[in-house]
Design a protein around this nucleic acid. Structure first.
Length: 424
RNA sequence: GUGAAUGUAGCUCAGUCGGUAGAGCUCUGGAUUGUGAUUCCAGCGGUCGUGGGUUCGAGCCCCAUCGUUCACCCCA
């Protein structure tokens, strides 16, 4: 309805029935990250537009047409972050955290891209980002991949596929890019409209085209792996050796190129076929030149981003949230009558003191027994505590199991606490 | 940015040839005056996305617009 104010297109409310999944996933992933020695960084949502222009590349779609950009009151151009690496590198340099040291960093938060919304692609979306600075050897590339594999294992996901590739040094990549442009330019008449455009913006992307008409042309194109410099070749071989040794399965996808300009050497994606055309759940790679490009000292780096919406959608598709009891209350406290309300609220606080982990809902708003039992049942609580006139007169508290057929019991306050201790 | 589908109750949907709107679920109450989840009965709930047009008459036909969905592009 046009008179109602609606959320901005592509920006979703995450409702209570879903936030529980988010909390579970975020907690499991952050536990793993902390277990590998990563430290959390919290970054602003807004940065100067120039930062993204320099980091992501002037001619990429992200910078050209997908950023939420506006002028600050002092006339400076600001943008909502379309990805996390730029702000992370900026912050690391700004606070001098990259001087002669290794840093392992993670962050979690919203990113913004002005794209047409689609299945699991939104204008505000959430990523967990991971970045490592100061390590140039392939062992860290391998460890990062092993850690992501652990993510899926802990969450119960089985059918994500790991694809890896090497883009080589920036020099090798540039040489290859020239060869590729030359090759496609000689076959211009075979290219479709999209690929014509990509010839100037990101020719490596043509290799990834979904257009079947281009299949032969792409198969005969120069291969990136043939242009790798020796150092990158060796790095890539070492990475494979580490992965083989650790038993992590992967496929080498020579057409795997990343959209952002800053990558070199190792790039990778974890992909699924279960989310329609948005199959990439987690992706990243090495970006050894970026820190220096932004004014820091020469610092090798590698990182990745994980799309939380996609990950959670995949977990839902695989029905892996079935037995989440995270939110199930232990107790629903029913109170009928004014006197019961007064006694009940103090009882509830006493129980909370006694059992800090207790999930207890007190019935507020009055109502008869039938009404309160209905709400107790709907709350999902395991047990109902019942306080009415009879109980008050006898100084007792009714106790009823709402999930199993058992006779209703009656306890004094101290007996109730003893009983709960045996149950919780 | 390109293309297609779609919009009726809080949710999922029906609505015939154009004749002023229906079901299930949810919610509330009752059957049962202190016992939920089952059953039965009743009730609440609508500017048919919005604005225009055609028509004696539009949920239905036409135009525009907004939203949603899926795909392309791009990407997590």
């Amino acid at each position: 309805m046009s008179t109602k104010i609606q959320a901005i297109r592509g920006m979703n409310d995450i409702l209570p029935e879903k936030t529980i999944f988010w909390r579970v996933v975020e907690r499991k992933l952050s536990d793993i990250l902390i277990g590998y020695g990563y430290q959390e960084l919290r970054l602003p949502l807004l940065e100067k537009t120039a930062l993204f222009q320099r980091v992501i590349g002037e001619v990429t779609d992200i910078v050209e047409k997908e950023m939420y950009t506006f002028d600050d009151r002092n006339g400076e151009s600001l943008s909502l972050r379309p990805e996390g690496t730029a702000g992370c590198v900026r912050a690391m340099i700004e606070h001098g955290l990259l001087r002669n040291t290794i840093q392992k960093i993670w962050y979690n938060g919203a990113m913004f891209r002005y794209e047409k919304p689609q299945k699991e692609r939104y204008r505000q979306f959430h990523q967990i980002g991971v970045e490592v600075y100061g390590l140039s050897t392939a062992d860290i590339d391998a460890e990062i991949l092993l850690m992501t594999a652990r993510f899926w294992q802990v969450l119960g996901l089985k059918d994500l596929e790991l694809q890896i590739n090497s883009l080589g040094s920036s020099v090798a990549r540039a040489t290859y890019r020239e060869k590729l442009v030359e090759y496609f330019s000689n076959n211009l008449e075979q290219l479709d409209e999209d690929s014509h455009r990509r010839l100037h913006s990101n020719p490596l992307r043509i290799l990834d085209s979904k257009n079947p008409d281009l299949k032969t042309l792409i198969e005969n194109a120069p291969q990136l792996l043939d242009y790798l410099d020796d150092e990158s070749k060796q790095h890539f071989e070492q990475l494979q050796m580490f992965l083989n040794d650790a038993g992590l399965k992967y496929t080498i996808n020579p057409r795997l190129v990343r959209g952002l300009d800053y990558y070199n050497k190792t790039v990778f994606e974890w992909v699924t076929t279960k989310l329609g055309s948005q199959g990439t759940v987690c992706a990243g790679g090495r970006y050894d030149g970026l820190v220096e490009q932004l004014g820091g000292s020469n610092t090798p780096a590698i990182g990745f981003a994980l799309g939380l919406e996609r990950l959670i959608a995949l977990l839902e598709a695989e029905q892996l949230f079935q037995n989440t009891k995270e939110n199930q209350p232990h107790i629903y406290l029913m109170m009928v009558g004014n006197e019961a309300l007064i006694k009940g609220l103090s009882l509830a606080e006493q129980l909370r003191n006694e059992f800090p982990q207790l999930k207890l809902i007190t019935h507020c708003g009055g109502g008869n027994f039938k009404n309160q039992f209905k709400k107790a049942d709907k709350s999902g609580a395991k047990w109902a505590l019942i306080l009415g006139e009879t109980e008050l007169a006898n100084q007792q508290i009714g106790f009823k199991n709402l999930r199993e057929e058992q006779p209703q019991q009656s306890f004094s306050r101290s007996d109730l606490i003893t009983h709960l201790k045996s149950l919780l």
